[in-house]
Amino acid sequence: MKNIYPKLLLILPLSLLSCTEVTDEVINNIHQNNAQENYTSPFMGKWVGTYSGDAISGTLILNVSKSGSIEVTRAENGAVGEVYYTSLQGPSGALNPAPSPKGFILYGSLYTKSGTWNFKHWSGSWSVAKQ
């Protein structure tokens, strides 16, 4: 019978090394997930303001969640025009310029509390204040 101990001595450290790498990766993923779960956007809350410009104007309500996602309510002439969802980009409070289903797009930042908007062939500016 051949001596298998030299082979075991070689295999055992290699298997521990790969387990250590996997364990480190799992731990890093857990820490990253915990950081995301514990994150609170500094812009969290309700923001109310107006938009105005070419031919249309109205009211904006931005509800920013803990994670930084935004529910945008756009009203025109006192009636809700639409509700859609977007998000913040980075620590500057920049709005993700995602168009609404109808095509209304907000550009700007909650840090400056203002920006511009486009809708079909119209454009203008907007501003909000935190409630």
Rank of each mutant, 00 (worst) to 15 (best):
F43R: 04
L14K: 04
K7L: 12
T50I: 02
A35Q: 13
L62C: 09
G103M: 07
T73S: 07
Y39R: 01
W122K: 14
I30L: 06
G58E: 06
L62F: 15
S127L: 05
L110N: 07
L8K: 00
T112K: 14
I56E: 08
W122R: 13
N38T: 08
E37T: 05
I27Q: 08
L17Q: 09
N29I: 01
N63H: 08
Y85F: 15
I105F: 07
L106G: 01
W47S: 01
K102E: 10
L10M: 04
T112W: 12
A55Y: 09
T86G: 08
L9A: 02
P13L: 07
G45W: 10
A79C: 00
L12K: 00
N28A: 14
L14A: 11
M1Q: 09
L106C: 09
T20V: 00
G81K: 04
S87Q: 15
P13Q: 02
K120T: 01
R74A: 09
I61E: 14
G68N: 14
G115W: 06
V80I: 15
G81I: 03
N118Y: 02
G78N: 01
I61W: 00
L10H: 01
G78H: 08
D54C: 04
L16F: 07
I11D: 07
A94V: 14
A94F: 06
G108Y: 07
P13R: 02
I4R: 03
L60Q: 07
S67G: 03
K7R: 00
T59S: 11
Q89K: 15
T116L: 06
D54T: 13
Y51A: 00
S127W: 06
Y51K: 00
I11R: 02
P91Q: 14
S52D: 15
G90N: 09
E71R: 12
N29W: 02
S57F: 11
Y85A: 13
S123C: 01
I4C: 02
A98C: 03
K46Q: 07
N29H: 02
S41P: 02
I70L: 11
L62S: 08
F119I: 05
F104M: 10
G115H: 06
S65A: 15
M44F: 01
A98F: 11
Y107C: 05
I30T: 08
G68H: 11
P42A: 01
S92L: 13
S125F: 04
N28H: 00
N33V: 06
N77C: 05
E82Q: 14
W47N: 00
G90C: 11
Y39E: 13
S15Y: 06
G45F: 07
T40K: 12
E21W: 13
N63M: 09
N34V: 04
N33A: 13
G90V: 06
G53R: 05
V72S: 05
M1V: 10
G93P: 05
T73Y: 04
E25Y: 07
L88T: 12
Y5I: 13
N77E: 08
K113A: 13
V22L: 11
R74Q: 15
S67Q: 15
Y84F: 15
Y111G: 15
N38Y: 08
G53P: 05
S65V: 12
V72W: 05
K66E: 15
N96M: 09
S109Q: 13
I30S: 09
S41W: 02
T59E: 13
S15F: 09
I56N: 12
Y5T: 13
G58R: 05
S69D: 14
K46H: 04
L16W: 01
